[in-house]
Amino acid sequence: MTGLEIALIGVGLAVILAGIGSAIGVGVTAQVANGVMSEEPELFGRVLLLTALPGTQGIYGFLVGFLVIMKLGLIGTTTGIPLFKTLTVGQGWQLFLSCLPIAFAGIFSAIHQGRVCATGVEMTAKQPGGAGKAMVLAVFVEFYAVLGLLASILLIYRNW
């Protein structure tokens, strides 16, 4: 296996795992939100943010994948020889490992955040004024996805 292939597997994992987590998280929250809005349609605005929040991990995963592709020089303009032409197996593994923090932090935090947001939507159904509080609690889970994102970015842009 070449260094480029190993790095691209990392890109795939970051995008796919974080994306799966977000799809599950948003899916659960949206089902609950639909149930609430079938009785209280005026709550759409209040539950919208809670429903969208577990989607951020998918975006983080995509961002990390994009940064690796940029780093490899597969898209965009680069000065000199693009990295993917000279990438060693060792460098490929380094980029692969750089993708793992957001891949795993993304999938698990998105699923759990989806549950927090879904119960937040349930709370909003009973106390519409409580949507902000539910959002704050959901952000606590987001924090760990952000840490995963930062770790991945720092690893991608470390000095070779």
Partner: peptide, 17 residues
């Protein structure tokens, strides 16, 4: 948690109020 009931639970919470 039984996620098949996510929609139902949301609707019930609204009705409970």
């Amino acid at each position: 948690p039984d996620l098949r009931y996510a929609y139902a639970t949301g609707r019930i919470r609204a009705l409970e109020s």
